[in-house]
Amino acid sequence: MALAPHAEPFQSDGTPDGSGRRVGVLLSHGFTGSPASMVPWGRYLAEQGYAVSVPLLPGHGTRWQDMLPTTFGHYYEAIEREFEALRARCDVVVVGGLSMGGCLAIWLAAKHPRDVAGLVLVNPAVASTNKQLLALPALKYVVKSMPGIANDIKKPGVSEHGYDRTPLRALHSMIVTWKEVREDLPKVTAPLLLFRSAEDHVVDPSSARIILGSVSSRDVTERVLENSYHVATLDNDAPQIFEESAEFVRRVTAP
């Protein structure tokens, strides 16, 4: 199946810093989304000289039906492979993500605490207070999908090019794995910069509270975005995310 417009992955080689070190940044898009939500951020970081990787997760970027046989485990394996490839050509790597991408990033940091130099999370998802999700274990056998969650963006005329349907089996696999991710949060020691939209119609504030209250990181910063919805990397506050994350990467990877 051909990739949808704007779903192409993005990579940049970067340039060594003043000490001759190459710094890498891995950015992950969210559930039913695509690299389109992350590439502008990735390009900004690439312009700062960083080696950047924005991969396409399995089942994404084509049509929602292609997600039906995929699970959260497939997405994590893809991110871990990309991380290992980036680490092989860089001296130090920072990992970031939006929504489910933030969940993947923080689980990666929990599993590789010595190798992740920093974490940048934008509206990460590790929990939900939505009671409707309780029906998923049975509902996923009755219907294949429900309406999509893409394009929660305040800025007019902007699209993240995500799916218009949400595959329920894949969604359930993510929600089931959240428990494992939450249990591993105390293993996270990397410096953490977390952006959270004050108004988010996809991920509720419980995820940020759980993350900030559970990680073992001593260097933790939370930023509340007042003028963006869920896909903040494409929204009004995107420049703040780009600029502050670039400064964060510079600081946490300094020799």
Rank of each mutant, 00 (worst) to 15 (best):
V126R: 12
R209D: 14
V39D: 02
R22Q: 05
A78I: 02
I149N: 09
K154M: 12
V93H: 05
A109Q: 15
H60A: 13
M146E: 04
L98R: 07
A208M: 01
A125W: 14
N151Y: 11
E226T: 11
M174Q: 04
R63P: 03
V215F: 14
E243N: 12
V158I: 15
L45F: 13
F248S: 03
A254C: 01
M67L: 07
Y76C: 02
E84Y: 09
L194H: 10
H161Q: 14
M67I: 02
L27W: 10
P156M: 15
P5I: 05
A138H: 03
V252R: 04
E243S: 06
H60L: 08
A7T: 07
K179S: 12
Y50M: 07
L108H: 09
R169C: 02
P16W: 06
F195Y: 13
A2T: 13
A105E: 13
R196Y: 11
V142H: 00
V95Q: 10
K179A: 11
K155W: 11
V52L: 10
G213V: 15
S128H: 07
S217Y: 02
V116K: 06
A117L: 08
V95T: 15
R63W: 12
E84C: 08
E247A: 12
P58F: 13
G42H: 02
G49L: 15
L171E: 01
V224D: 08
N123E: 00
K131A: 03
A88K: 07
V120L: 12
V93Y: 05
Q11V: 15
V95G: 06
Q132S: 00
T129R: 01
V92D: 03
S217R: 00
A85H: 14
A238P: 05
E80K: 09
G101T: 00
S245N: 02
E247W: 02
D219M: 05
S214K: 08
T32G: 09
L3M: 07
A46E: 03
A4K: 13
L26N: 06
N227K: 15
V202E: 00
S197F: 12
E160I: 04
N123S: 09
V54C: 15
G24R: 04
R114A: 15
A36L: 02
Y75T: 01
H60G: 06
F72I: 13
Y163R: 01
V203Y: 13
A232S: 09
K144W: 00
V116G: 02
L57G: 05
G73N: 10
L134T: 06
E226R: 15
H230A: 08
L193Q: 06
L212R: 14
S217M: 01
D91T: 01
D184Q: 14
S34T: 13
T189A: 05
S245P: 03
R223G: 11
G20A: 11
G213M: 13
M146L: 08
L57T: 03
P239H: 07
I79Q: 10
T62M: 14
Y163C: 02
H74V: 04
I241S: 11
D17V: 07
E222H: 11
P147Q: 01
V220I: 14
H6S: 06
V54Q: 11
S228V: 08
L68D: 09
K154I: 05
F242N: 07
N236D: 06
S37W: 02
V120W: 06
A232C: 11
